[in-house]
């Protein structure tokens, strides 16, 4: 009985720690990436939410923000980068394009939704979403991680 309590408590502590120290992956695809940079930048400063260390290598990071149109040429690369990330890993799909194809959904070279390639935890709508929306998505993801509701 006491063992169980100890294990759950540790688990909780781990989840809390994971949620509050997400390291995002510098991975810009299209227009939404500019708004992602704004969210990192001086005015919105999303380091306030414990997620400030943007890493350039997938092996260092645990949050992938798919910010832009996913084309058929890029989709296998996204999957590969995702596979290279170490567990625990999370994905935010930013913008209409990454979530469902957006304005380019009728195009012959566009994948309608990055969720066909990698599992997505939080979708953000907008074309492009404002930085506030991305920050809200981050908060939402943190809450889900703490509550243990994420996909992996």
């Amino acid at each position: 009985m006491s063992d169980n309590i100890l294990v759950t408590t540790l688990d909780e502590a781990l989840k809390w720690g994971t949620g509050k120290s997400l390291w995002p992956f510098t991975f810009g695809l299209a227009c939404c990436a500019i708004e992602m940079m704004s969210a990192m930048g001086s005015d919105y400063d999303w380091a306030r939410f414990g997620s400030d260390v943007f890493r350039d290598s997938p092996r260092h990071s645990d949050l992938m923000i798919v910010s832009g149109t996913v084309t058929k040429k890029m989709a296998p690369r996204i999957r590969r980068l995702y596979d290279q990330m170490a567990f625990p890993k999370f994905v935010i799909s930013m913008g209409a394009c990454a979530s469902a194809g957006g304005p380019y959904v009728r195009g012959y070279s566009v994948v309608d939704g990055v969720d066909q390639v990698v599992p997505v935890d939080v979708y953000v709508f907008g074309c492009p979403p404002r930085p506030e929306a991305l920050i809200q998505a981050l908060k939402m993801l943190q809450d889900r991680i703490v509550a243990g509701k994420v996909k992996h």
Partner: peptide
């Protein structure tokens, strides 16, 4: 890696509708 057929899509709608895709060229 970001080929989004902007030209073709702009040819699919009325003149002002193409603006959506032109906007997203140099974002």
């Amino acid at each position: 890696y970001l080929h989004r057929n902007a030209e073709k899509l702009a040819e699919m709608g009325a003149y002002p509708k193409g603006m959506v895709y032109i906007d997203r060229l140099d974002y």
